[in-house]
Amino acid sequence: MSQLPTLSNAQIMQICKVIGDTGSGLTGSEIGGLLAELRLPDPGGSTTKWRRLDCALVQRVNATKSTNIVYSLISHCFEPARGLEQPERYRWMMSEVNRTLMLVGVEILDSGKFHLVKAATNLSEVERRTKELRNKLIGYGAHAEVLKCCRWELLTEDYYHAVHEAAKSLCERVRTMSGLSLDGTRLFEKAFSLNDPYLALNALQTESERNQQNGLKELLNGVMHLVRNPTAHELRIHWDVNEEDAVDTLNLISYLHKLLDRCVVVRWAS
């Protein structure tokens, strides 16, 4: 963690206020467990939750002259398994912590790992960057499924994970509609088969209708090859996504969701 930038006392305090938030943060017992995992001295429950965290962290920061312990706490807090029980709380905390981390050019991913982003120089830039991409997509008429599944990634302007999550939403939607448990291209090949389909874009009676069905299937497969598979398996440095690419890709995924809106269920997987 030595390559991560140093955090100021104010930034540490803000992170603690998010994680120890009364309504949406960790519980007192969860904070106690987190401090124990990191072998930090626990000031106890006689103070507010965020002050309890802040006190423990600042003691270690002062002793070591390093803010690595803060990054360790963030990484432990957002270890993926912790988000399974209350995903909305987990996502809210992650989004809010990332607003502070953006000021030093860092972001925590939903894998519990950090990556570097362009640092924001002031609060106004943080606000602009958290809204700009989402507003552009809304202006283009992005499908609700794209905005819903990407809302946290979009709020932190993480283009890489925005397009990845949006691509995953296509698989999830087809699985929900068809009852199939497959994934990726295998899912689309079976769901939109011309001979024995689970989902149909049209009546499939004419050559043109069958071509449209096949075209939808190939477009879905294309998104998997172009977007989801590279972002799932390649290091970020080898598959960077700029704002223009993100907008174009998310609009394509929105169009595919609109086509799925028109599909009917031919049969349901047992």
Rank of each mutant, 00 (worst) to 15 (best):
K136D: 01
L204E: 00
L147T: 05
G44T: 01
E145G: 06
P43L: 07
C55N: 10
A203S: 14
G179K: 10
W92Y: 13
F192C: 05
K136H: 05
A232Q: 13
G222R: 02
R60M: 07
G139D: 01
L73K: 00
A142M: 04
S66T: 00
S270R: 15
L252A: 13
E145A: 07
V58R: 10
L256H: 14
V163L: 02
R262P: 05
L137H: 02
V174N: 06
R262S: 15
V106D: 00
V58E: 02
W92P: 05
T156Q: 04
R82N: 13
L216W: 14
N214K: 13
R82A: 09
A144P: 05
P197T: 08
Y160R: 07
M224G: 03
G222Y: 13
R186M: 07
E125T: 13
Y140H: 10
N211Y: 12
L260Y: 11
M177W: 07
L259Y: 06
E157S: 12
C55H: 10
L219K: 15
I253C: 13
N214Q: 14
C150F: 08
Q212M: 15
G33Q: 07
L194W: 11
L219A: 15
R128D: 06
Y140I: 03
E107H: 02
S29G: 08
D240E: 13
K148T: 11
P41E: 11
I15S: 01
L250M: 11
K17P: 04
R128Q: 12
A166W: 00
L84W: 07
A232P: 06
S75L: 03
Y160E: 06
S29I: 08
S178W: 05
N221R: 14
N214V: 09
K148C: 02
Q205L: 05
A36M: 04
K136T: 04
F188Q: 02
K217S: 12
